[in-house]
């Protein structure tokens, strides 16, 4: 009887200790995640807060987390004549990035479908060929792009940027899409073929609707990649096709000391479209990107 009682107490304290340790571990885990999130978000948070302050308050020596006066003057400056001519740059970037994303999406979805459905002679080498061009982008080939732009007389036009962006996004997008297509059962198309569709019709009527979410994700990802480009726009565009990143970059140089507020507001506006797009496609994009890595 006595023995039983003791062991009962023992068991209780053991369980108590266990649950305390568990609780401690959990709180440590959340603390670590919280710290990581703070480290991750702090610069942006501070950027947004600062962009909402009047210029006098921005340069105050003591960082104030909750602004006394919230103002949109910096945002108005960004849109105004002294700023970057935000709307013009926005228009350029939007046109170039969307058209390139569409072109890239079209070329890549055909190729990705081919890679996911057929085993043809030259399959491996074609796959490697497409992969390899992820390595040769940006600075390594920028001189050639300058030549291309001159030969075809397309320097400082939308066309040269669209072509350049498509060249660097399409390999990535192809691999992403191949993963999505592989997840679609071939039985679907076989049924369509039996019903008298040809392969292209089967792709159009049967596969594309099922693949639509993945396709949209990939096209938007291509859009974000193009939107975030710097080197091509810097080297291949002058006044007419100047993109947001380059425009804001020049702004930092000109007004780096005097107009931080305006610069910061322009920055927030530049980040906004891609961050919003990203929030919407986050889940699917993540599964697509990682599936490619795991399956390979």
């Amino acid at each position: 009887m006595r023995h039983n009682k003791l062991s009962f107490i023992d068991r209780n304290t053991a369980e108590l200790r266990k649950s305390i340790i568990h609780l401690l571990r959990r709180s440590l885990l959340y603390l670590a995640l919280l710290l990581l999130s703070v480290f991750t978000l702090l610069p942006f948070l501070w950027l947004i807060i600062s962009s909402l302050k009047p210029s006098t308050a921005i340069f105050s020596e003591i960082p104030r987390w909750i602004p006394r006066n919230v103002t949109l003057e910096n945002y108005l400056w960004a849109f105004g004549p002294k700023g970057v001519d935000f709307l013009e740059l926005f228009k350029n970037t939007l046109i170039v990035s969307s058209l390139s994303a569409l072109l890239s999406g079209t070329l890549s979805s055909l190729a990705a479908y081919g890679l996911s459905r057929f085993r043809f002679p030259g399959y491996r080498i074609t796959g490697i060929f497409i992969l390899v061009f992820q390595m040769f982008t940006g600075p390594v080939v920028i001189v050639s792009w300058y030549n291309i732009a001159q030969v075809f007389n397309i320097y400082d036009t939308y066309i040269v940027l669209i072509l350049a962006y498509t060249a660097f996004t399409s390999p990535v997008i192809t691999w992403l899409l191949r993963g999505y297509f592989q997840d679609i059962p071939e039985a679907l198309e076989e049924a369509a073929l039996v019903d008298g569709c040809n392969k292209l019709q089967a792709l159009y009527h049967v596969v594309l609707p099922v693949a639509a979410p993945g396709l949209i994700t990939s096209v938007l990802f291509a859009f974000v990649l193009s939107w975030n480009d710097y080197i091509y726009a810097l080297s291949l565009a002058g006044k007419n096709a100047k993109t947001l990143q380059v425009g804001i970059g020049e702004l930092v140089g000109f007004f780096g000391q005097t107009q931080w507020g305006g610069v910061m507001a322009s920055g927030v506006l530049t980040a906004l479209p891609v961050v919003i797009i990203f929030i919407f496609l986050q889940k699917r994009l993540v599964s697509g990107l990682t599936a490619g890595a795991v399956k390979e």
């Binding site: 999130s37 991750t40 978000l41 702090l42 920055g267 990203f278």
Partner: peptide, 23 residues
């Protein structure tokens, strides 16, 4: 958490530059 984490990855670099240079 995953969404928060990925924000720097997707943000245009010039904005990253502005944010950090400001800090």
């Amino acid at each position: 958490f995953r969404g928060i984490m990925l924000i720097p990855w997707v943000t245009p670099i010039i904005v990253v530059g502005i944010a950090w240079r400001w800090m």
